[in-house]
Amino acid sequence: MNATHRIDGREHRVLALRRGACQRLEIDGSPLEASLRWTGDHEGTLTVNGHEHPVAAAQDGPVLFVHLEGRTWRIETIQGFADRTEGGAADGGIRAPMPGVAVEIEVEVGDQVAANQRLALIESMKMQTEITAPVPGVVTAVRVAPGESFERGAVLIEVERSD
């Protein structure tokens, strides 16, 4: 179970070759030896090939945040399966392209909608984005109300296809 990680949309592979106090790793094909000594809950000293660096790290599920040499990294471990704790959306669920706030919801459950019809307006970063129907169909659920905020990937509206 070696890990594939994603940083800024790019995938990287970390192979553990040896564990223990000083681990031998192969990162994107290059070997290195590394160890991590914790000095606090989230702070410690990283030793890579004999050189020490102060490091801070914290984890949120599959995402690790690492602060190293003045830079913070968001490193996501890719799992080979869907995380079912998120309560996935039914097919036809329209997901938020970015976190934001719903400004207007223009449809109700039961509405017949055409493909590309505007369903809602969301705001993020002082910019408004239209949410449109990906397929023609019937609105089966509206999961967000005007003024409500949501995370990236949250299902906003569900449309069941009917051609």
Binding site: M1, A16, R18
Partner: peptide, 9 residues
């Protein structure tokens, strides 16, 4: 098996 076992062991 490769996925099941700990890497680096």
């Amino acid at each position: 098996l490769e996925q099941l076992l700990d890497p680096g062991t």
